[in-house]
């Protein structure tokens, strides 16, 4: 159906898509996890309530989340250029992906932590646990299944965003779908890319759920 070079291009960009998602998700968690922890810990009724700071941080997170990804992509281009030395290609797409996904990840982590029964945290406090011990030994391990489900959601969202970066030649399957399929009316190529994206999304989502269920000791 396709010439070998086109098939080559698809496989190559399939790899690029996966690369972008994996690296962006990793960096988003590197930033988003501490941010989410801070949001929960400083919230009123949290381990170390700091209402004003919490509110300011919340507004910043919401602000970043409300900027449409495509606009963010252009706005931070100088920063992207500074970090990666280029303003297009996979590495250059990762920067706006992380900036956009990190606050989202922070909110995901915040909601996972809020699922923890406060009684368990209180029990740890009654044993003389410090706040740091409560975060690392209670909150993180106890919300592990929920965090895993969250990471699948984050990865699929990042995959969706990465496809949008095709508009500026970000690379990956979305890039082909837009450049060849959409702009040059190669519908068959567009469909193939979209179907591949659907399959990746399904796999990430399903794997995330399964791993989460498997590790959740409440279900056995």
């Amino acid at each position: 159906m396709f010439e070998p070079e086109i098939i080559n291009m698809i496989t190559e960009n399939f790899g690029v898509s996966i690369y972008m998602v994996v690296v962006s998700t990793l960096f988003s968690y590197l930033l988003g996890l501490p941010l989410g922890v801070i949001l929960v810990v400083t919230a009123p009724g949290g381990l170390k309530p700091m209402p004003f700071f919490n509110q300011v941080l919340g507004v910043i997170v919401n602000l970043l989340r409300s900027v449409p990804f495509l606009i963010l992509l252009f706005v931070i281009m100088p920063f992207t250029q500074f970090v990666t030395g280029s303003s297009f290609g996979a590495n250059a797409t990762i920067v706006p992906l992380v900036v956009s996904a990190a606050p989202f990840v922070a909110r995901l982590i915040e909601s996972s932590f809020k699922e923890i029964d406060f009684g368990v945290i209180e029990a740890a406090q009654s044993m003389g646990a410090s706040n740091w011990q409560i975060i690392t030994k209670v909150m993180l391990p106890e919300s592990k299944p929920s965090l895993l489900v969250g990471s699948a959601i984050a990865a699929t969202t990042i995959l969706g965003y990465s496809a949008m970066a095709g508009v500026v030649g970000g690379g990956g399957l979305g890039d082909i779908a837009i450049r060849y399929g959409f702009y040059r009316y190669q519908n068959d190529l567009m469909y193939v890319c979209v179907i591949l994206l659907v399959i990746i999304t399904q796999i990430i989502q399903e794997a995330g759920l399964r791993i989460a269920n498997k590790t959740d000791k409440r279900l056995h």
Binding site: D117, G119, V120, E122, A123, Q125, S126, M127, G128, A129, S130, V138, P141, E142, K144, P145, T215, D216, K217, R218
Partner: peptide
Amino acid sequence: SSKELCKARQSMGMIFQQFNLLMQRT
């Protein structure tokens, strides 16, 4: 101090109505 308080709490066990066990631990 909060550190000393943590230490003192180690000499006081507490149990609860809802048990409050860590669900992900044996």
